[in-house]
Nucleic acid binder design. Structure first.
Lengths: 347, 347
DNA sequence: GAGCCTATTTATAACGTTTTAAATGAACCG
DNA sequence: CGGTTCATTTAAAACGTTATAAATAGGCTC
């Protein structure tokens, strides 16, 4: 036999464009099937063949065609992120996606953004994605106790991870932040500093973590036996000036709160502004403990005590969990609870 | 002929899953090719056939398989957005993407996020996307005068739109904000209010819009013949505390500036904090005019005068322009300049 | 050396779409 | 009525991959 593997095949159109399995086959002398198998490390392919194919593939920079793979396998290699307009502020969405992207490095998965323009739940988007097989997995936030999206996805056995828990009886993957501890700790600190009437600015009631925050806050308040107040008129999604105006108005009335637990940095800033309308100074007449998700507050308002929630880490965990869920791992390790980290204020 | 179109074909596996062209073919009695043509409104298909096919397609909720289309045509129907970690703050990325998504509604295009973790240019990501045909178009920001990404994309005739201009001789699509006018107007206002030594906090020098801001600022300053100052030590990407510390230090030295043009809301807040370290009050001892891209500043610091840049609109324009570029429209109408809108301060 | 196992490789057929080239048949013309 | 045109419709091939089933060839056993 004088025939080297190379001369064995080789007669195909050079065509233009990217290398395909066919190119590799011609180059190595193996059949397309063998090359495909070698690249996916199938056990039935000899070690030497595997080595050689990988070598040549790396050499010419072969990359499998996503469309062909998707068409053949039905897997999209796509993770869809539901983006809510409320997530616009302060880089919530961007941070989460950066973390997610990090977790997805070295996987074949791409992130595609599915925005929701309507103000209602993005259940329709979820339905569309599942029904038409637009993705292999779903990521979303603003979870509600009986979230219809979670329900729908569970019913259809579609992989997903949400930011926040539900109260549904079926366990499901989620990544959450320990908002109970956050609010408990925040209120404790206000009380320790001698504040006698703490209040809390909560997210809209229908979201699960609103309950957790409330519960943590109430626990601390009751333990200490101090007065408290929970405003109904505003929440974290309210326009900033509404928050500021409300705080300002309230500060002018009797028995105003002297301690604020703020679920976000923006509401903390609004609070400071509202209070200053009445000449009340942060750290003197009142204190704030706020949840910090960006670098904004720290070092700008050093007197605001903050407790950190790392959204990039959250995104990364969500990616990790979603990969596990798609791979079919059992429900263990699919519920992640991230712990608050306390930042002591610069005095 | 007793045969209705329906009974003519019809004998195929019902299979499970989504409807395909085949399903439509069976249902209407036409061949797959005809159905495909009818849906793409090819002229050679009779009006009646077109109508009927569309009707049935709508009825059963047919959606073409993206993978198959992509494989066959080579078009990906994907727009890739290069996400920079610097865009994390204040929802720059999210706003842009929401606008972009809006422009892409009713097109077959999806948005996929390609993050850049390295601190250097994302030229590598661009190369990868172009070479491996991962998208039909590209969107990115932080444009530089001789941006290597723009250069590469032009050389390869790959559709893109960047946020910001270049100084390359070849015209190319971009959407930009009139930063000259912004800085000019901002400085004018400070001077009108009687400030005698304005300063400006610029983005990193290598970005194009840094030059534009500088130019606008200098023009106003020279026209008025007032003193000025341009700090070298800090820029808009500096950590917030660096900005605050610098401002604070400077305020304690002789001849400190009494007017600030801030390219972003965060730097405005840092400035306020830094100045207050020396008991200097906004609107009394000094003034700020800041670029506003979110709702953060307005109504929180009512004394900060702001000039608005609408990032969602920017994203929408970029989407519009990119669609035109992909469709092959000529270079006319592919350079968009968005005008600043002035917000007068409350008081 | 026929028969059988095992290890490795291979040809072929899909996946759902678009494209190319060809077929059908009605209408028209002489 | 044969030939030609035109308007529609159609069959077949291809895009690049993976899955199914089959082929090849050593190495054994008896």
């Amino acid at each position: 036999m004088v025939d080297t593997p190379k001369s064995a095949a080789a007669e195909t159109r050079p065509k233009s464009g990217k290398p395909t399995l066919r190119t590799l086959a011609d180059l190595t002398g193996f059949a397309v099937t063998t090359v495909s198998r070698a690249l996916s490390n199938a056990p039935q392919i000899s070690a030497e063949t595997r080595r050689r194919v990988h070598e040549v593939a790396a050499e010419i920079g072969y990359l499998p065609d996503r469309a062909a793979q998707r068409l053949k396998t039905g897997r999209t290699n796509v993770i869809s992120v539901l983006l809510d307009p409320h997530e616009e502020i302060l880089g919530y969405g961007t941070s989460l996606m950066l973390g997610l992207a990090k977790a997805l490095t070295d996987t074949p998965y791409h992130i595609i953004v599915t925005p929701n323009f309507m103000n209602d739940s993005n259940l329709d988007a979820v339905r569309h994605i599942v029904r038409n097989g637009m993705a292999d997995g779903l990521i979303f936030s603003r979870t509600e106790p009986f979230d219809p999206r979670v329900r729908f996805l569970l019913e259809n056995d579609f992989p997903f991870v949400c930011h926040g828990r539900t109260e549904l009886s079926t366990p499901h993957p989620y990544v959450d932040y320990d908002n109970f501890s956050f609010a408990y700790e925040a209120a404790r600190r206000l009380i320790t500093r001698g504040r006698r009437k703490p209040t809390i600015i909560l997210p809209p009631k229908r979201m699960t973590f609103s309950q957790h925050l409330m519960h943590g806050f109430m626990t601390a308040v009751r333990e200490a036996g101090v007065a408290y107040e929970i405003p109904d008129e505003i929440h974290l999604d309210s326009p900033i000036d509404h928050i500021r105006d409300f705080i300002s108005r309230r500060a002018g009335q009797p028995d105003a709160p002297d301690g604020f637990v703020c679920g976000g940095e923006v509401s903390a800033l609004a609070t400071i502004t509202g209070m200053s309308d009445h000449g009340l100074a942060l750290g003197v007449e009142y204190d704030i403990v706020a949840k910090q998700t960006s670098k904004l507050l720290v070092n700008i308002q050093p007197k605001v005590e903050t407790i950190y929630e790392d959204l990039t880490d959250t995104g990364e965990q969500m990616g990790r969990v979603l990969m596990a869920r798609i791979a079919g791992t059992n429900t263990a390790d699919m519920q992640v609870m991230l712990k608050p980290t306390i930042n002591f204020p610069a005095t």
